[in-house]
Amino acid sequence: MWSFFHKLGSPPWLYAISGSILRWLLPATLLALAVGLAWGLLFTGPEARQGNSYRIIYIHVPAAVVALAGYYVMAIAGAVNLIWKMKMADVAMKSAAPIGAALTFIALVTGAIWGKPTWGTWWVWDARITSMLILLFLYLGVLALYEAFDNKAAAGKACAVLSLVGMVNIPIIYKSVDWWYSLHQPASIKFIGQSTIDSSMLHPLLLMIAAFYALFTCCLLLNMRAELLQREARTNWVKKLAVAADSRG
């Protein structure tokens, strides 16, 4: 157990292990995305009142769910970096921020596209939508703060503090549809009790959520590998990799 923990601190080990994870995770993710999209878009019936426009939930809901989870990944990685001074956690935090921002943006844009035919407007200042917009600002704030520091070790720690402070917002976003009476419908998928979504629509949706989690993991690992190579560009193991890649053509 502890040797695993120590190995996590080693860039070449992390680079190698993430490579072997990606070798099967990336194809599996793409397959799950393809199957989930085809299932949701082609093989489920239209919704009783919304017709076909509801199908955007197969993108919108997974993106929103993983955007929130991504913030936790970023903040917890930041905390690990602050507490145990683990550099790889800093790499993870820095790599998670742009992915989370992109997912939040996708959730907002798909929500707007769905809102136009359904609510008759692109945008409403509703509790959940506004708090997702704040989430996007939090992600972008972390990215902006990271860029502002010349000293990248300090940048990582400062961003970790900022993302921990911003974590106050996440339960508010998550619960906003239950706490405030808002235009955005309350959560349909429930872990306790009966879900308020038909199982023929629920199953592809759950597959898409799982696929988006996997996609987040793939993007995170790919981003981390790029960041590792950049940070360790002067070390021997990166040079060896570069030479090996060069000789392969």
């Binding site: 600002f137 972008l140 902006a144 502002a148 400062a158 503090v161 900022l162 402070v165 911003g166």
Partner: peptide, 27 residues
């Protein structure tokens, strides 16, 4: 104060501090 403490060492802090703390001011 959190925003000020995070950006106190940066030369171009003025704009940045607003980006960092305005989202937290909203509630």
């Amino acid at each position: 104060g959190i925003g000020a403490a995070l950006t106190v060492g940066l030369r171009r802090g003025g704009m940045l501090i607003s980006l960092l703390i305005l989202p937290l001011y909203m509630p």
